[in-house]
Design a protein around this nucleic acid. Structure first.
Lengths: 338, 338
DNA sequence: CGTCGTGATTGAAAGGATTCAATCAGCCGA
DNA sequence: TCGGCTGATTGAATCCTTTCAATCACGACG
């Protein structure tokens, strides 16, 4: 059947074995319709027999660019980002383009390493949720012909297309809902405060707090994971009873789930004593033993829309820069009495 | 400062601008100690000024192989796999090797597409949790000089190194614990049954079931996500009371969390009426409102060990094939009365 | 029977970084 | 002052695929 190769097989070897020229082999690979049926068969058989596999490096070198798309997310352990990535991957698969996924873990130097890699690889497009000050690098990439789309952020400058969700609106949805179910002492858990997302969600919440309620209490956290939520909830539990919140809005679902756990452990009834709202609506929000009310971000859609923008920019580098802002949606579940 | 480039800058351009030969530029890039300090400075300055970035395709073409490592996981949405991937990535970062991560989603054709990609890219190593019948392809990859390590599986044939966890033992740990807390009617939820993991965990459970208990009831599922767990739990709730299990062992944490949710919604008390044990010990297991007892797999360690094996095989292709089997560990929490 | 046209095939050139044998410059010691 | 040595630098060859102008073969048509 197949033979054993110490050395790798090239088009030249295939050509020699099949008794045709390298040009013909290349045509078989890339423009089979230009090749006579007999030759096509014969060459394809030879390729299979020798186990020839295209060398992508050489192909790219000639082509000048790579078909792959690079993506840098904040945290691959947050299901929110893996869901977005899934949306991207699904869309790319349809276009036969591979996705190279990197996670910066909120670390600017790691982000920079991935940018180096993608730049050297000459990826044809980049999807990024930026951490550090990367604007100059993004500009350079674009000058080189790499399309760039910012995900889950807006750049401010109108230089790069972006896809994001209206976080102020999301905060408002949460606040209005909590007000509607009669909550008057609302706390917000999340941080660090210099994250745009955190600020916007908080602002939306504040705007919609009932007139007869206390002002929003912000418990700032260093990270956005369950552990941070747990600790924040414990600190809230030490407050004298009249000051204790009757509702907590977590800046994302991981935080909210941590809050939920700490409260349940402490014997606080959810939602009777304290209502909880999360953000993102990851699958685990619905799977929690007390299903979590959450502000849903259209994760798949974000991935899909970002991919479409990117592919459009690759096809036509002069395509208009667009900031697409998607709408969040409130999903009511048991944690607020749904 | 920086100039604007329509066309890309090559070593030749740098050489011309710096007034040296391409060989010297290459030396500056790869063997700076061979270059005189003055030249080094000058060339580096020129590189910065022109914004030169190495073309990786050309570099690889010459070098014959790529520094990157490919990884194919079963499901990027399962935190278990992203945790393993993190372990891999951390280790690789230390060796300045990029990781290209793909998710097969349990789909053999998607797995095959990633294998094609990695083969064409000439990655220097591959980490894979196989789905389809890929042994012949893995052999071919190795013949071509790509190191291969199987993750979270054993190959059976002693051809490729692997890192896995003793699943029979894990099942036994769960069974012994449930027996110790007095459970006698145990159900196992997971599937499909042709997954080795599922079979092994079930077997371990059966081996340790108390002599005076009923035989294990296996509710087979089509997938291993929360939704499957939810549906399985609902079907168990339709059983007549005396047949209802007093303990449920989920084949992974996603399934167990789904079970937990369905039971809680139905008013079944956990752990009083039914105890629940999961598998993997993902972070969400501890974060669940009723924290989940789970059989812990050392996820970071699996990633790290697999990476070490892979790097060793890359350095020395004749390195001995090793099957490393790690030990699982029971983490007791509230869902079994901990 | 010669010419033209069509479709198939050819083969050399290009793409950019790396390598290494060859060359060069400069200095020391004789 | 010159041969010899060392360290620095050079530049042509190489890696493999793709492209495209040129060539070829063959049948149809005038």
């Amino acid at each position: 059947m197949s033979e054993s190769h110490r050395t790798t097989v090239s088009v030249k070897d295939v050509a020699a074995a099949a008794g045709v020229s390298v040009g013909t082999v290349s045509n078989v690979l890339n423009r089979p319709e230009k090749v006579s049926p007999a030759t096509l068969d014969h060459v394809q058989a030879t390729i299979a027999r020798l186990g020839f596999v295209r060398n992508d490096a050489a192909r790219q070198l000639r082509a000048g660019s790579n078909r792959s798309i690079g993506m840098i997310v904040l945290d691959i352990r947050n299901p929110f980002f893996t869901d977005v990535a899934r949306g991207v991957e699904d869309r790319l698969t349809a276009h036969r383009r591979p996705l190279i996924l990197g996670s910066s873990g909120q670390d600017a130097s790691r982000e920079s390493t991935y940018l180096d890699l993608f730049e050297q690889q000459r990826v044809s497009g980049l999807l990024i949720t930026p951490v550090g000050k990367v604007l100059p690098r993004l500009r350079r990439l674009r000058e080189r012909g790499t399309a760039v789309v910012v995900v889950d952020r807006r750049t401010g400058s109108r230089e790069f297309s972006s896809v994001s969700v209206d976080d102020v609106r999301g905060g408002r949805l949460a606040g209005q809902h909590l007000a509607a179910v009669g909550r008057r002492r609302i706390a917000f858990v999340g941080g660090p405060a210099d994250l745009t997302q955190v600020r916007h969600r908080l602002r939306g919440l504040q705007e919609s707090v009932p007139a007869d309620g206390s002002p929003v209490r912000h418990v700032e956290t260093a990270a956005m994971d369950a552990d941070a939520g747990r600790r924040a909830a414990e600190s809230l539990l030490t407050l004298p009873a009249p000051e204790r919140p009757d509702a907590i809005f977590g800046a994302n679902d991981l935080v909210a789930l941590g809050v939920l756990q700490a409260l349940t452990l402490a014997g606080v009834r959810v939602p009777d004593d304290v209502a909880i709202v999360g953000y993102d609506d990851i699958d685990f929000a619905a799977s929690a033993a007390i299903p979590l009310t959450s502000v849903r971000q259209p994760r798949d859609e974000m991935g899909a829309v970002a991919t479409d923008l990117l592919l459009a920019a690759i096809d036509d580098p002069a395509a208009r820069v667009r900031d697409i802002v998607l709408e969040p949606e409130l999903v009511v579940r048991r944690s607020t009495g749904g």
